[in-house]
Design a protein around this nucleic acid. Structure first.
Lengths: 363, 363
DNA sequence: GTGAAAGCGCTAACAG
DNA sequence: CTGTTAGCGCTTTCAC
């Protein structure tokens, strides 16, 4: 090409044979296919991106050549170049721990919601909630993504980094002491009241609560709802009826055992989430008691396995699809700088789903 | 700084006031903090990355300034620059549908395995398996990631693109007609034989099979194991006992109902996976029958909810942690070009877990 | 120890 | 319609 310059001082390319000193494994670049097509890189770029300024048949020819050579556009380079014009990537980041059923539902809902907006989603899942998100990924997310949805935030410092870097962020079921950010969550307080009242209405007086992970706001709200409803019904508040189920089966099992071992055991258990409800039921049945014959159990979340495993679990349904949509919408609003988005906290209504694990107490 | 050049032709920066024409929202760059610290960008880069060539206290000073200014290194730019030296990103991509319990287990195991290797993981989940992975994310993955683990591959063309682009890839529980790539999976055939023989050993003669999604190799292998074991035991092969459970509850329920409605219904059901086993149990109980009293049910996978929901499900355990490790290891081997990695297909042993849903048939 | 140069692969913005 | 120039933010030379 423009090789008839004044003798270039140091020979740049070691082997100026035919311009292709690319290692075999390397991917072809715009320049490569431009050379092959006998045009400039820009023409190729324009052709490949469907911008106008290229005749239809030239475009076709270029596209054919590109695909033959196995060209794929270098996302990183494109993004860097685009950074000038502040273009979006169309990708939304999600930080979550996806190994619980609850997470599965949320991530799934998010996924649909994101697609409905014509975007895509990348999720980062850290096995150990105590650890920070490692630098690499966080940086990648920071620069590759239009915004972040945090499902169960972890260590605050991560979020500070993101927040400081100006990445739009919204939380789903946020932590109590988390960085301040807009959020969306189901009405945990209302749901807890509803669940407790359901049990009371059935005639139960001795109602235990399997509390969730206390860091989470939702767990605190559910506890509050439980206590308030008990009080409102004039029932005794018994500390020994509040066990720590930690939102997970491993904690819920021993907690349930302890409940059963009480001198005056409860006749009903309100579990902080479905996973612990299921664990409670298993524990109760292993102890030779029946559900709901001897003890009623109600859960919270209505994850899909609640219906499917054995007879249906009575529970409080979280509107997962709506939560997903709301979170995505909020994120987009935030990004657009829409008024009030930055301090909005959405609470979505829940619903009692009566199935087969609650009944009046045995007399 | 070096502003006493010969008059620069067009005024590059519209407002040459004090070099900071950066829009307020924009993140600071190396140059910004270099200017603030009164050094060159390189010095800052070296200081921030802990490379030597910077005195200890200068480094500290620079780091302080950087953190005060809220500097975060631009991952995209770094990556582009690094591309010359072919450096790794330390991030492994996973393509999966995480909304099934099985996926949860796999992704979770992968996550641990990846961390044990000192790397991280980003997962892409598409709601609809039929759709292609959209371009954006695929390109991002292609360039941002050291390799891809495909859990349940989807449309072949996606994988062609990745494969063509030279991204190392391994499959977990691959599709039947998928792009050829190394894989790791549990021994579905062996497990199916084991499950079927367990039922036979208990005295069952009328054993039905709830087949999985037929595109998947694992589903085919399980069906084969079921048939072979039946034949080996001299039992009749009855087509009407092979129902389509599709690996999911929505399909398993009607399939089970059909099985129950047969004039000569089975006394045992081998479900292709735990999700369909649970659905089968629920269906059976709704029909007023008991498990395992009237009908025995055995699942496959041993996802954690199999133990927790109600009384334990008898099932075939997949070694999820080992699968995760093997997949990651294989990917790394592939990347290193280790011999044989490209054509390796690992099959990991499974194990019968007897719990409470299988028993001898009622006479 | 520090500074200047060039370039990763792409695109916006003009010039022809 | 096509070509040239400059630059995204960083790092790797190689001089000083």
């Amino acid at each position: 090409m423009s090789d008839d310059q004044t003798a270039s001082p140091p020979p740049k390319r070691p082997a100026p044979e035919n311009q292709r000193t690319r290692s075999p494994g390397a991917r072809p670049t715009l320049a490569d296919i431009a050379q092959a097509a006998g045009v400039t890189r820009m023409t190729v770029s324009n052709a490949l991106n469907g911008r106008d300024g290229v005749s239809a048949d030239l475009r076709e020819r270029i596209r054919t050549i590109a695909s033959e050579m196995g060209y794929v556009t270098n996302w990183v380079a494109k993004k860097l170049s685009d950074s000038r014009s502040g273009a979006e990537t169309g990708i939304i980041g999600v930080i979550a721990e996806i190994h619980t059923p609850f997470m599965g539902e949320v991530v799934s809902a998010l996924s649909s919601a994101v697609r409905d907006q014509g975007r895509d989603m990348l999720v980062y899942s850290l096995p150990d909630p105590a650890k920070n998100v490692p630098g690499n990924v966080l940086d990648l997310l920071l620069h590759a993504v239009d915004g972040v949805i945090a499902v169960i935030p972890r260590d605050t410092s991560d979020f500070h980094r993101l927040a400081t870097a100006g990445v739009p962020m919204v939380a789903v079921d946020r932590l109590n002491a988390s960085v301040e950010m807009p959020s969306v969550a189901a009405d945990s307080y209302g749901g807890a009241c509803c669940a407790t009242r359901h049990l009371i209405a059935l005639g139960h007086r001795k109602i235990a609560f399997l509390a969730g992970e206390t860091r989470r706001l939702s767990a605190q709200e559910r506890l509050r709802g439980y206590r308030d409803s008990l009080r409102a019904a004039g029932l005794l508040h018994r500390p020994e009826y509040e066990a720590d189920g930690g939102y997970e089966p491993q904690l819920a099992r021993p907690a349930t055992q302890a409940l059963l071992a009480l001198s005056d055991p409860p006749t009903a258990i309100f579990a902080g989430n479905d996973a612990s409800a299921l664990a409670a039921i298993a524990t109760i049945e292993e102890a030779g008691l029946s559900v709901p014959g001897d003890i009623s159990v109600i859960g919270f979340d209505d994850v899909s396995l609640a219906v499917q495993g054995g007879r249906g679990l009575t529970t409080i349904r979280q509107p997962f699809p709506e939560i997903g949509c709301a979170a995505v919408q909020l994120l987009l609003d935030l990004r657009e700088g829409r008024a009030g988005a930055a301090t909005r906290h959405l609470t979505l209504p829940v619903e009692l789903i009566e199935r087969a694990t609650t009944a009046p107490p045995r007399r």
